[in-house]
Amino acid sequence: MTVIGSASAVSSDERALRDLYLKHGPALYSYILRMLGGDTHRTEDILQETLLRCWSKKALTDSDGMAVRPWMFRVARNLVIDAHRTRKARPTEVSGDPWLGDMSAEVDLIERMLSSVVVREALRSLTPAQREALQATIFADRTTQQAAEVLGVPQGTVKSRVYYALRNLKATLAEERAA
C-alpha cells in the first residue's frame, strides 16, 4: 500500500514539473539565453538546474502566497551569476592548440638557418643520381613512377636511389649531431 502511494506521489510531482516546464519553460529559456549572450548549451544547463531546484523544493505550484514564476526567474538569475563568478575565480581555460602553435611559430631564425646549412651539406654528400632522385620524388611531390618517367630510368632504380639517399642523409645528419 505504501509503494502505491509513493508511486502516485512521484507521478503527480512529475506531472506538475512537466506542466511547470510547459507553462514557464519558453519564457525562462529566453530570459536565461539573453543573460548568457546566446550560449544555448549553458542556457539548457541553467534551465535544467532551475527546474531541478523547483522539484527538490517542492515549489511546483503557486502556494502560500508565493508565485512560482518570479521565484524560478530569481533562481535562474542567481545560477547564472554563480556560474559567472565561478568562471572568473578560475584561471582562464585554454586548449592545447593555440599555445602549441605559438611555440612552433617562434622558431629561432638562426637555428633555422643553421639547420638549412647542415641539411644542404648533407645533401652535397650524396651522389648526383641520389640527389636527382630525391629532387624528382620528395621535393617535387611525385610518385616513384612519375619520377621514373621524368628521369627516364626504371621505377626500381628510382626507388633504390631514394632509399640509399635517405639512408645516407640519416647517417650524415647523425654524424653532424654527434660532432
Score class of each variant (00 low, 15 high):
L134P: 02
Q130F: 05
L151F: 00
A133W: 09
P154H: 14
Q155S: 09
P154L: 07
R142P: 01
S160I: 11
T143S: 15
D141M: 15
Q130R: 05
L126M: 06
E175L: 13
T137G: 07
V162A: 07
V162F: 04
R131H: 07
V158F: 05
P154G: 15
V162W: 07
Q146E: 13
R161G: 05
T172F: 01
R124Q: 10
A136Y: 04
Y163E: 10
Q130V: 03
L169Y: 10
G156W: 07
K170D: 07
E149V: 09
L169P: 09
D141P: 07
V153T: 03
A174H: 02
E175R: 14
V162Y: 06
L134S: 06
N168E: 14
L151P: 00
A174W: 01
A136H: 02
E176F: 04
V162L: 05
Q135L: 15
V150Y: 00
R131G: 10
G156R: 13
L169D: 09
K159G: 07
E132I: 07
S160K: 08
K159T: 14
L126K: 05
R142C: 14
E175Q: 14
K170A: 03
A129M: 10
K159N: 11
P154A: 14
A165L: 05
A140I: 06
E132K: 13
V158M: 06
F139W: 14
A171H: 06
A165G: 13
L134N: 04
S160D: 09
A147F: 02
T127W: 12
R167V: 09
V153N: 01
T127Q: 09
Y164Q: 14
Q130L: 06
Q155T: 10
R124F: 10
A129C: 06
I138N: 11
S160E: 14
N168Q: 15
R177T: 04
T144V: 12
R131V: 08
A129S: 11
A136K: 05
T137S: 11
Y164A: 05
R177D: 01
F139V: 15
L166Y: 11
L151K: 00
V153A: 04
D141A: 15
R124A: 08
Q146C: 00
S125W: 01
E176P: 00
V153Y: 00
V158D: 09
R167D: 10
R131P: 02
A147E: 08
T137W: 12
R167A: 06
Q130H: 04
T144K: 04
R161F: 14
V162G: 02
Y164S: 09
E175H: 10
F139S: 09
Q135T: 14
Q155A: 08
F139T: 11
G152C: 03
V150D: 03
T157E: 11
E132G: 04
Y164G: 08
A136R: 03
Q155P: 02
A129I: 04
Q146G: 02
A148Q: 03
V153W: 01
Q155G: 04
S125E: 07
R124H: 10
A136L: 02
E175A: 14
L126N: 05
F139Y: 13
S125Y: 00
R131K: 10
R142W: 11
E149T: 09
A165T: 02
A147Y: 03
V153H: 00
L166S: 12
D141R: 15
R167E: 13
A147V: 09
L151H: 01
P128M: 06
T172Q: 10
D141E: 15
V162Q: 03
E149P: 00
